[in-house]
Design a protein around this nucleic acid. Structure first.
Lengths: 179, 179, 179, 179
DNA sequence: AATGAATGAGCATTCATTCAT
DNA sequence: GATGAATGAATGCTCATTCAT
């Protein structure tokens, strides 16, 4: 979807539907056969991007035996996906808490991320990580992960990206792990 | 500034200048005596909010002797400021990397945060924290801090806010500290 | 085009685009599908009026054998066209050297009047008229012609219009002819 | 008056009163102590320019004995004045028949030109020029005179300006004189 | 008298949405 | 189903004019 880039670079109201339809190679009116309003369109785009992201994050997870392995994989998957799909990632960042994305959409989009809660749960259950107000921990982990990704996107990646992924994971892991 | 709330809740293009002037209790034209364009207005608001935030973060810092004390104070200051000024905080979150805030504005706004770099430097110099690609660490700290604040704003605060601030700091601190 | 009358009577900035579109029987926005800006619109109108005028001036010219016949015909054509299309004529007068008509437009508009130079050339070549700084003579002829037309429009025409056309031509002709 | 240049180059509505007051070195409000409205201001400017012009045209006329001498002097005076005061001249040209100049103003402005009618009258009375619908002749003379001036302003004057003034007068004169 | 900040009506232009083809 | 011309409400911004100082 070309809409990701356009919306991210120009904002919601800064991106005319005519521009979206042109990028998409269809006529102006055609858009409105598929999305009743412009808001519906961006909400749909949001759900798509979120589900793309969710799929990328969980890739290969079932092969990992321990909680730490899973956590480390997801940590890296997030960063790698973001580096390869910067437009979708930045779109999600930009519109995550914008007034254009409805609560309903957010709810639907988040439903793809249920597996994260399960993994985290496993970590707590097996005693691998602390349980101080779990959800706070989850937020901190998630935001740290994103912070690394954003920094890489901003600075431009270099050849030691993988090292950095490991180092940042270790740092985070040391904070949350019991030992 | 009433503009914080309006822009946050409705977006840049979703907030007519007439609405801003009405909230501000002046005529439409009056706005344009002080800000040449709507973009200039939001950029000015951004700088103001950032400097408010910076002032709040560093409050009381000179009285703290060690790096850890300083870090702990700033961590708490951030969260307390955000909880007391949710509109300004959310405004900053929303427009931090929007296309409406110019590079120049961002630069000016960031200039107020030089003290953070100094504090971090002290931490590294005195050997209190690790030096794995410091700037990444800074980003992770900052984003974790924000994550806690955002969660508190979303969920509504309760009486154990201070406890939570401490707990989250400890978690972060354990990750970054050498011992 | 209704724009001729409106622009002439009210000036460029005194004529809102909404008024033009209303007169034209279309919606406000429709105007801007055909003309990117209001300035483009008035420039287009200018070119149209000029080409109408050019066509009227040269009507029947090829049937005239001598230079004097051609000159006399054009002299009359100008006046007759202006009397029948006062709105277009006054529009051209009003905006001929206004800041709204670009050099480019003027150039394009003038291109229709190449035949005038040819006719004048013939007059000089055949020795019918003097050659004192030809272009000045051309300007004087042209402006005299216009002056008669404007006076007729201002005073209202009467039944001896044709006589007057002849008389004024003779007067001008006597000035420029070699004998 | 700086207003001449501004109005000519930018049009009536294109020239803010604030710009005029700035050029004049007074405050915005001050203008309105002297002219009730912007229209009153431009009308006053028009009258001033016209009277300047009238004064220039008649300069030295009483010393001239014959009609032809007077006519030749006025012809030259017009052109010389216009070349020395292009801003006022072009201002008059531009706004002569604009909707901003009221009939009353035009009437007042024209009152300064009574001497022209007298001179023309003398020409007819003494039998120096033809009497075919005198006012038309006057218009033609006047417009020819202006045409020469405008051409000179457009092309830039050179050292044979005086020659050209003579030549153009002769051409005109031959047209209107009885012999 | 002079000032210039404040006013708010007015206008060019954009753009989501409709609908005849 | 697809198209894209037409619509007209909405909005950023300007500027003549006022009036408290």
């Amino acid at each position: 979807m070309a809409a990701f880039k356009l919306f991210t670079e120009r904002g919601f109201h800064g991106t005319p539907t005519s521009m979206i339809s042109e990028e998409a190679g269809v006529a102006t009116g055609t858009l409105f056969r598929y999305f009743p309003t412009k808001e519906a369109l961006i909400n749909a785009a949001y759900v798509v991007a979120k589900s793309h992201m969710a799929a990328a994050l969980k890739a290969g997870i079932e092969a990992k035996p321990t909680f730490e392995d899973k956590a480390r994989l997801i940590w890296g998957n997030t960063i790698r996906w973001g580096l390869q799909n910067p437009e979708e990632f930045l779109f999600l960042e930009q519109f995550a808490s914008s007034p254009f994305i409805t609560k309903l959409t957010e709810k639907e989009a988040i439903s793809n991320f249920g597996f994260l809660a399960e993994v985290l749960d496993e970590g707590i259950r097996t005693g691998a990580i602390k349980d101080i107000r779990d959800s706070f921990v989850a937020e901190m982990i998630f935001s740290s992960n994103m912070a690394v990704l954003k920094k890489l996107l901003r600075d431009g990646q270099n050849d030691c990206t993988e090292e950095l992924i490991e180092a940042s994971f270790d740092l985070m892991w040391r904070g949350i792990s019991k030992r």
